[in-house]
């Protein structure tokens, strides 16, 4: 898949982050920057890291990929399969 390939190009640490973790980290970085107690070097590092996260989060918004699945119990075995509602197939 296209998105999988792209993900591989991003830092390993960031790939593991969920959108929620990324947003929380981003909010934390912004607060740290705003409190102004960091050295200039730290500020610039934080800024760079924050911008990377923000770009990643924004990209996630435009990323139209979304999986819609359903869990079904087939003879005691639970499996998931793509879900197509009637409305969508029409």
């Amino acid at each position: 898949m296209k998105s999988d390939k792209e993900e591989k190009n991003i830092d390993a640490e960031e790939v593991e982050m969920t959108f929620e973790e990324a947003m929380e980290k981003l909010e934390l970085l912004v607060e740290q920057l705003e409190c102004g107690r960091m050295s200039l070097d730290e500020s610039l590092d934080t800024f760079e890291q924050g911008m990377k996260l923000a770009t990643r989060c924004r990209k996630r918004l435009d990323d139209a990929e979304r999986r819609i699945e359903q869990l079904i119990n087939e003879g005691g075995k639970i499996k998931s399969e793509p879900f197509n509602s009637k409305e969508e197939t029409e």
């Binding site: 981003l26 912004v30 920057l33 705003e34 102004g36 911008m51 923000a54 924004r58």
Partner: peptide
Amino acid sequence: SSTELEKYIDSLIHRMIQSTDQKIKDH
């Protein structure tokens, strides 16, 4: 909402730029 989140992330970016700018100005 995507649009609200987009606005929010943009505001975070703006805040980062502003505070980093300020830091550089101070220095």
